[in-house]
Simulated assay, not measured.
Amino acid sequence: MLFYFSDNKRARGRPQTTLPTTLNNDLKKLVATKLELTTQTDLDTLRLIAEDRPKWNALVAEIRKTADAARSDDPASGRL
């Protein structure tokens, strides 16, 4: 996670999909929360939420609901 916040130069080509980038994209999609994974303090805030089981379950449920809604809006998803 610390590498994600460091200012290292990126390699050429398509950027790798990592856990921090995926989590940040999911958090950005949530309208109800203003969470974003851009700094070390954001990561610490997310850790505190993860330590509180009811808050973490609520956050995960909200991410799932947002992802399901986005999938249902996509006409190409699930169709052959």
Results as ranks from 00 to 15, higher is better:
residue 22 T to V: 15
residue 40 Q to S: 14
residue 29 K to C: 14
residue 18 T to Q: 01
residue 7 D to G: 12
residue 73 D to H: 07
residue 56 W to D: 00
residue 14 R to C: 10
residue 10 R to S: 13
residue 55 K to S: 10
residue 66 T to M: 07
residue 4 Y to V: 01
residue 62 E to F: 08
residue 55 K to D: 09
residue 51 E to H: 06
residue 36 E to H: 11
residue 41 T to H: 12
residue 50 A to G: 06
residue 41 T to D: 15
residue 3 F to Y: 11
residue 75 P to K: 09
residue 12 R to V: 13
residue 76 A to K: 10
residue 36 E to Q: 10
residue 11 A to L: 05
residue 38 T to C: 05
residue 11 A to P: 03
residue 47 R to F: 07
residue 46 L to P: 00
residue 15 P to Y: 00
residue 62 E to T: 13
residue 45 T to F: 05
residue 32 A to Y: 07
residue 65 K to S: 13
residue 16 Q to F: 06
residue 27 L to I: 10
residue 8 N to P: 03
residue 10 R to F: 07
residue 21 T to D: 11
residue 12 R to F: 12
residue 49 I to R: 04
residue 64 R to E: 10
residue 62 E to L: 03
residue 76 A to N: 06
residue 78 G to S: 06
residue 42 D to W: 01
residue 75 P to M: 07
residue 17 T to N: 09
residue 66 T to S: 06
residue 31 V to M: 05
residue 57 N to P: 03
residue 18 T to A: 03
residue 37 L to H: 00
residue 40 Q to P: 04
residue 59 L to Q: 00
residue 40 Q to V: 15
residue 32 A to E: 12
residue 18 T to F: 02
residue 48 L to T: 07
residue 15 P to Q: 01
residue 71 R to K: 13
residue 36 E to I: 07
residue 64 R to Y: 06
residue 16 Q to G: 15
residue 73 D to A: 14
residue 2 L to T: 06
residue 51 E to Y: 08
residue 15 P to T: 00
residue 33 T to M: 14
residue 57 N to M: 05
residue 53 R to G: 04
residue 54 P to T: 09
residue 14 R to N: 09
residue 77 S to P: 04
residue 75 P to Y: 05
residue 72 S to M: 14
